[in-house]
């Protein structure tokens, strides 16, 4: 039995204590309050008394509200689409930024711009790019004769998701790039040398050596990206407010709408609880996969 294992319990708790104290101190009340609210009919508009209504709010979404399931599906598309696109962009970018190139530090810095650009200006610029009347994207596509008529990127159910996911990938991929870049530093040069001796090059080197070694990084940053995208809604909100219709509503925007547009705090709270449960299941599943692969 190793030294660490013998010492483990007491020390582990000591190390964990501050973190747990922080989270319990600051998150317990909001969490409990949220769960409590989800069983009430609290509405800020025009209702005098607040009553406990049991599972009524949950039943409303699961059984009555026709939109709930499509919104749940949208959330899945939004989250996994965003994360997938972020990886598709982020990994190759990290590989290039890890190579010997001129002014590498500068490029590594500039890649962060989407990540730090304030949402207000992000929305101004991207709406300008996507607009169906004077949009920059349409302009270029028409200049190069790729389309003959303007496409209403954000107003068409077929194009609105790709457009949103593109924006989301743009805003989020710097994080993946950074994580992968950090992960690449952990791969020892000798591994590559050995593989090169065996004749592996280019894509095969990446596929058989780099990618497997990056797996832990990818899993962890994937989880973080999933959780972050799940609860964030600002980007969708400023670009489409969940529209056209409810096409791009996700659980996060729907929670927001229920609590702060309709002021049905009870319903909003129930949605938040359900949203949490779903993402919890997703995360646990994910962690299981992570563990299996790393054993």
């Amino acid at each position: 039995m190793s030294l660490l294992k013998r010492l483990s319990h007491r020390v582990a708790y000591l190390f964990l204590l501050p973190t747990l104290a922080y989270l319990i101190g600051f998150q317990t009340y909001p969490l409990v309050e949220n769960i409590r609210l989800s069983f009430t009919n609290l509405s800020l508009i025009g209702r005098e008394s607040v009553e406990y209504v049991g599972w009524e709010n949950y039943r409303h979404f699961l059984a009555v509200d026709k939109q709930f399931w499509s919104i749940l599906w949208n959330t899945v598309v939004w989250v996994f689409g965003s994360v997938l696109f972020q990886f598709v962009l982020g990994i190759p970018t990290a590989l290039v930024l890890n190579m010997r190139i001129r002014a590498r530090g500068l490029w590594r810095g500039l890649i962060l711009i989407p990540w730090v650009m304030p949402v207000v200006v992000v929305s101004i610029v991207w709406k300008w790019i996507f607009d169906g009347q004077w949009g920059i994207l349409n302009f270029f596509l028409r200049e190069f004769h790729l389309i003959s008529r303007n496409v209403i990127w954000l107003g068409n159910p077929q194009t609105v998701w790709p457009s949103l996911l593109l924006t989301s990938a743009w805003k989020g991929f710097p994080y993946i790039t950074l994580m992968v870049l950090a992960g690449l530093q952990g791969i020892e040069k000798e591994v590559y040398e050995a593989a090169k001796v065996d004749g592996a090059t280019g894509f095969r080197l990446f596929w058989h050596i780099t990618l497997p070694l990056l797996q832990p990084t990818i899993f962890v940053s994937g989880l973080v990206a999933i959780v972050t995208t799940w609860t964030k809604f600002e980007l969708i909100w400023v670009l489409t407010e969940g529209g056209p219709g409810n096409t791009t509503s996700t659980l996060a925007t729907y929670i927001y709408t229920n609590s702060f547009v309709f002021y049905d705090m009870g319903k909003g709270a129930a949605l938040a609880v359900m949203s949490t449960l779903v993402v919890l299941i997703v995360s646990l599943f994910y962690v299981k996969m992570l563990r299996r692969s790393s054993v």
Partner: peptide, 21 residues
């Protein structure tokens, strides 16, 4: 009505008006 109007907010509408579209 411009087909793009289904995505517009007030600033977009005013912009279209200013550009005489």
């Amino acid at each position: 009505i411009p087909p793009a109007a289904v995505t517009w907010s007030y600033p977009d509408m005013f912009r279209a008006f200013c550009q005489e579209q």
